[in-house]
Design a protein around this nucleic acid. Structure first.
Length: 261
DNA sequence: AACCATTGCAACCGCGCTGGG
DNA sequence: GCCCAGCGCGGTTGCAATGGT
């Protein structure tokens, strides 16, 4: 299917940012005659651009029905919801958001929403709570920093505040991790529909984890020194069909138990 | 005030799909 | 069925604007 890129061979064709004059030529031409063949449009409109560049400029910027400005909360929620269903199908997502272009949505996702979800402990690809080791990656640094503060070397006027801030961050990371475990267990067990020991609908493991979380209250800080007590003994592999990743995870978690905050 | 780092977005690139000859 | 032109899509890059030191 060899097809040379549309702009190859068009020597001297302009690239880069569009000038107001070029915009006007393009808008005037399309308003009067429609875009027709994008390939022929530049010549007909008197533009020294390739057709592809014209199409992009029109669809992403000059089209009269484009809605510019910040995305509101409803649009944000809709994008996240649609992304969880459609993945990176930006053009499909864009059809559900009138006035927004696929490029705009893609940019907004990459610069805002992805980070927002990561900050909430949600994997932006799977839209599920992150249970991967990368969540733990930042903890050693946090804990080390907290340790150096508590050792009192060169403590400044606000070292207590810094210490508390670090503790809160570490707690939050721990809490997110455990929430992820609970959710993963919940979805895994319900999907497998495997009856497990315990009361009613929940498993003993889930109950244990929920108890560690403080009854499942999302706002409960996981600051107890016993936070991870007994996690290793839960033997999650009995309940999860995994490739061993959970064992690695628990090994990584073991040092948390031994680290005094 | 000057420099550097980060962020946000417009534009480009390359690949795959589709339809006509 | 094959070839190719044209288009659309998703990923990536470049750069101006902004913030921090």
């Amino acid at each position: 299917m060899g097809r040379s890129p549309c702009c190859d061979g068009e020597a001297g064709v302009k690239k880069g940012p569009w000038t107001p004059e070029e915009d006007k030529l393009l808008v005037d031409y399309i308003s009067e005659k429609g875009h027709g063949s994008w390939r022929r449009l530049p010549k007909l409109a008197g533009l020294n651009r390739c057709g592809k560049s014209c199409r992009l400029r029109w669809t992403n910027y000059l089209r009269p029905d484009i809605k510019r400005g910040r995305f509101d909360d409803d649009e944000e929620k809709l994008i996240i919801h649609l992304h969880s269903i459609l993945g990176n199908k930006w053009s499909s997502i864009a059809t559900k958001l009138p006035g927004r272009t696929d490029n705009e949505i893609k940019n907004y996702w990459n610069t805002h929403l992805r980070k927002k979800l990561l900050g909430m402990g949600i994997d932006p690809v799977t839209h599920r709570p992150r249970t991967d080791l990368s969540l733990l990656a930042g903890l050693p640094a946090l804990l080390a920093a907290a340790g150096s503060f508590s050792s009192g070397s060169g403590a400044g006027a606000s070292w207590v505040e810094n210490m508390n801030a670090l503790r809160l961050q570490a707690d939050a990371a721990k809490f997110q991790l455990l929430q992820g475990l609970v959710r993963a267990l919940t979805t895994n067990t319900s999907a497998a529909a495997a009856p497990m020991a315990g009361n009613g609908g929940g498993s003993g493991v889930q109950d244990h984890l929920m108890a560690l979380l403080g009854g499942g209250e999302e706002t409960t800080p996981a600051s107890s020194p016993m936070f991870f007590d007994g996690l290793e003994s839960l033997n999650l592999d009995d309940h999860l069909n995994t490739d061993g990743g959970w064992k690695d995870l628990l090994e990584q978690m073991s040092w948390l138990n031994s680290t005094e905050l």
